[in-house]
Simulated assay, not measured.
Amino acid sequence: MQIGFIGLGNLGTPIAENLLGTHQLYVYNRTATKAQPLVDKGAILCESVKELATMCDVVFSIVSDDAALKNITEGPDGIAAHLKRGGVHISMSTILPATATALEALHHQHHNYYISSPILGRPEAARARKLNMLVSGNAEEVDRIKPLLSDAGGTAIWEFGEEVTGAPAAKLCSNYLILSGVAAMAEGIHLAKQSGIDAAMWMNMLTQTIFGAPVYINYSAALLKENYLPAGFGLKLALKDANLVLQQSVATGSNMPVGKTVQGLLEQAVAAGFGEHDVTAVAEVVKK
């Protein structure tokens, strides 16, 4: 199969590098210079989305938001119109379930497939091939692309049904717990310091006992270091995800008072100039 990859950001680049290790890879990025390290390793650079889609049986995309995904997928020069007949577009972006539904319908019109496969994991997890891949969509096509998800760095593949909305919904719920966890840890660490106890020792106790999960272990370490650059999960993107979570809560009639509070903290952090910093920079708002 000819494999394409669109979106060479902090997370996309190491995933594309994983695929390049086992496949001939066609790449496109809006800022072409970001593709050069992959080209140096053997990837073929395409000058447009249309050119890449025309060449490929499978196209991976991981772009910043719903609008960016629609931009590369829709229209006369988009993925859907030019992907090979029976080809598969694997979307790894964090988006609204409704967007996935619309894009699946568009691909169906062009006789190809859209599969939702958002990711749980930071860039370092991608480089270590320890990503969790959430996936949903046509069962036969999901089975066909599973080996590619493993090649992309997936240590585990979690299936959420044949509706393309399943994996995006699971990803939003997951990111909500991450964001609320980071905010709560930032507050807890600040409270511990203000109370005169060793915050690092306290978090070490928690992460070795009742909070021994990667989110708490990794994010608490980052919060304690107070080193917010370079961003693994950018604060501006975190706010985008929080906004999507609350949009989905409205669409489903789900009340999320804690979610609104977390959204407000992220908004304050972006307004304070931390948009390009790591999400853990929300701690700077908590301190004030």
Results as ranks from 00 to 15, higher is better:
Gly166Arg: 09
Thr165Phe: 00
Lys193Trp: 02
Val182Tyr: 01
Asn204Ser: 14
Pro168Glu: 10
Lys171Met: 08
Ile178His: 02
Lys171Ala: 12
Ser195Asp: 10
His190Trp: 12
Cys173Trp: 08
Val164His: 00
Ile210Lys: 00
Thr209His: 02
Ser174Trp: 03
Ala169Glu: 12
Asn175Val: 05
Met205Asp: 07
Gln194Trp: 05
Ala183His: 09
Leu206Pro: 03
Ala200Asn: 12
Leu177Trp: 06
Leu206Gly: 05
Ser195Cys: 09
Leu172Ser: 07
Leu179Arg: 04
Ala200Gln: 14
Cys173Met: 13
Ala192Tyr: 07
Gln194Tyr: 06
Pro214Thr: 15
Thr209Pro: 00
Met205Ile: 13
Met205Cys: 03
Ile210Met: 12
Val164Phe: 06
Ala199Gly: 11
Gln194Asp: 13
Leu191Asn: 10
Ser180Thr: 15
Tyr176Leu: 14
Phe211Thr: 00
Ala199Leu: 01
Ala213Met: 13
Ser195Arg: 11
Met205Ala: 14
Leu206Phe: 02
Ala199Asp: 08
Met205Phe: 11
Gly188Tyr: 03
Gly181Arg: 03
Ala170Ile: 03
Met185Trp: 00
Gly212Met: 06
Lys171Leu: 01
Trp202Tyr: 14
Ala167Asn: 14
Ala169Asn: 10
Ala169Gly: 13
Phe211Ser: 04
His190Phe: 05
Ala167Asp: 09
Leu177Ile: 12
Ile189Asn: 08
Pro168Phe: 10
Gly188Glu: 08
Glu187Asp: 14
Leu191Asp: 13
Gly181Met: 01
Thr165Glu: 10
Val215Pro: 04
Leu191Gln: 15
Glu187Ser: 12
Leu179Gln: 09
Pro214Arg: 09
Ile189Gln: 13
Met185Phe: 10
Asp198Arg: 04
Gly166Phe: 04
Tyr176Ile: 05
Leu177Tyr: 00
Ile189Trp: 08
Lys171Gly: 01
Trp202Met: 15
Pro214Ser: 12
Ile178Gly: 03
Gly188Met: 09
Val215Gly: 04
Gly196Asn: 05
Thr209Arg: 07
Met201Arg: 15
Gly196Lys: 06
Met185Gly: 09
Asn204Phe: 04
Pro214Gly: 12
Lys171Phe: 02
Asn175Phe: 01
Gly212Thr: 07
Met201Pro: 00
Thr165Pro: 03
Ser195Asn: 15
Asp198Leu: 01
Tyr216Cys: 10
Tyr176Ala: 09
Ala169Thr: 15
Asp198Ala: 06
Leu179Phe: 04
Gly181Leu: 00
Ala170Gly: 07
Ala186Ser: 10
Ala169Val: 11
Asn175Cys: 02
Trp202Lys: 02
Ser195Gly: 15
Leu177Met: 13
Gln194His: 13
Gly166Pro: 09
Leu177Gln: 11
Glu187Val: 14
Gly181Pro: 03
Met201Thr: 15
Ala183Asp: 09
Gly196Ala: 09
Leu179Ile: 05
Ser180Met: 12
Gln194Arg: 15
Asn175Pro: 04
Leu177His: 08
Gly166Ala: 03
Ala183Val: 15
Ala170Asp: 04
